[in-house]
Amino acid sequence: MAKKQGETSADEETTGHEWDGIQELNKPLPKWWLYTFYACIVWAVGYWILYPAWPLISSHTAGYLGYSQREIVAADLVQAQADKAGFRDRIAASDLETIQSDPELLNFALAGGAAAFGDNCAPCHGRGAQGASGYPNLQDDAWLWGGSLDDIHHTIQFGIRADDSETRNSQMPAFGKLGMLKPDQVSDVAEYVLSLSGNEGDEDAAERGKRSSPPIAPRATGRKAKAIALGAPNLSDELWLYGGDKATVVQTITNSRSGMMPAWHERLDPATIKELAIYVHSLGGGQ
């Protein structure tokens, strides 16, 4: 036994347990420990009665207090909605310019828009609205469908090439695929398109490409290839939705592109869409 020299525990009661000659003395539990333990038992019985505790076959004992975390969450959500209701009603009732000029509403709309953007838009446009290949960067100043508040609002509401009568729609012919241009002509047109934004390339090919451009092209993109109609990109700027290298441009001319954005008015309420429009407009590119 681990005892001080000259002392024994021979006369002390042991539990009878022994390991390698080490015996366990039968000492009482500390009083504070025992009382805490008893108190816990009493507490547990009270808890069983008052709170959901025992699992049954298909449910559980509900407890006298009827406590339910689900109901608390539901009530919290209702409460949160109610807390926001004043602002959201005002946003739903106001037009976009009014919201933008009221600092209080603007603040609320920006915060709500940022949250809604993260939930609904970020998967395609990125967390910072920086976009990706095929998904426009919403921070820059190039807008296929207009960058004013109303334009953005309309786009979010009805989408692009979505299944909706008011959706934004435009179609570029698949020049290569439909045989309107031969592959070497496609390559020349691509050289020409790239030269429009100051890229240095094969000048002869570009000149040939300019002449072989199908008559339909200037109609959409304008004589100087600056966009004149909604939905047709400005080819002379430095931004590319799908990429500004030759292979990508060739692919675009050959197969066309038709990116799609859903119509959000079916999924989000009008106030949220307004908040989103104001938020996107505030990202730096709004016109």
């Binding site: 967390r127 910072g128 820059d140 100043d141 430095e238 730096g284």
Partner: peptide, 17 residues
Amino acid sequence: DRNPLYVRLSDGGVRNG
């Protein structure tokens, strides 16, 4: 701003937020 660090504009300009 971390995402994106900079934004290219159509006129070749660059913007930071």
